[in-house]
């Protein structure tokens, strides 16, 4: 137990449990991003993040040392979100996956050389457009995809965290990417990318 005098002179962060400081605090940026993705609102995200950390600190003794702390924090955040925030969030328009699949097949039949796609789409799409496209994904797809591509979590960790079978993780990631591909292709095209010109180069 710290003496009061010590507590005043030390910076606040020094007063936190050392393990918590080392294990949990570094994930604040990732969790903030996740909160933004979940809530789509910076104020709600800040509240959700604070609530998550307060809960995590209170239940720190429940955390199994040596396991993935980030996944543990994500889980707390997801549960808090489900309990208090989800009701306020407008879900993006429902996507008709079959329709997307059709569009995807059309693109596939138009694009003869898949090796060109890299330069064509990657170079022509803006950061804002990528964010917009990700935002338009249904929440369950978006979460799984970001856990995988941004947070670098394994399928197993995602399955554990989302409480879904690993096969569902696979298919959600696959579908999410197809949905994004159609969106991004659209953006790249509208930004002046021209199939014929690209072929000439």
């Amino acid at each position: 137990m710290l003496q009061d005098s010590e507590r005043i002179t030390r910076p606040p962060i020094e007063n936190l449990d050392e393990e918590f400081r080392k294990e949990a605090l570094p994930h604040m940026d990732s969790l903030y991003n996740f909160a933004l993705q979940l809530t789509q609102d910076s104020d709600d995200a800040a509240d959700l993040l604070q609530e998550t950390y307060i809960k995590a600190y209170r239940f720190w003794d429940k955390f199994e040392k040596g396991t993935n702390c980030k996944a543990w924090l994500f889980r707390i955040m997801k549960n808090s979100f489900i309990n208090f925030y989800r009701k306020n969030i407008k879900s993006p328009e429902k996507l008709d996956y079959d329709e997307i699949e059709e569009i995807y097949e059309t693109i596939k039949s138009n694009e003869q050389n898949p090796h060109n796609l890299d330069r064509e789409i990657f170079d022509n799409v803006l950061d804002d457009e990528v964010m917009e496209a990700i935002k338009s994904l249904p929440e369950e797809f978006r979460t799984v995809l970001l856990m995988c591509d941004i947070e670098g979590m394994s399928y197993e960790e995602i399955a554990d965290f989302m409480d879904i079978p690993i096969g569902t993780v696979r298919s959600r990631i696959h579908r999410a990417r197809k949905l994004l591909a159609v969106k991004l292709y659209d953006y790249a095209k509208s930004r002046g990318y021209n199939v014929d010109e690209a072929d000439k180069e």
Partner: peptide
Amino acid sequence: VESIVKKIVSFKFVKTAC
């Protein structure tokens, strides 16, 4: 296509710092 999308998401997703 999936590889490209993964690359785009990984590279172009703008992380907002807390």
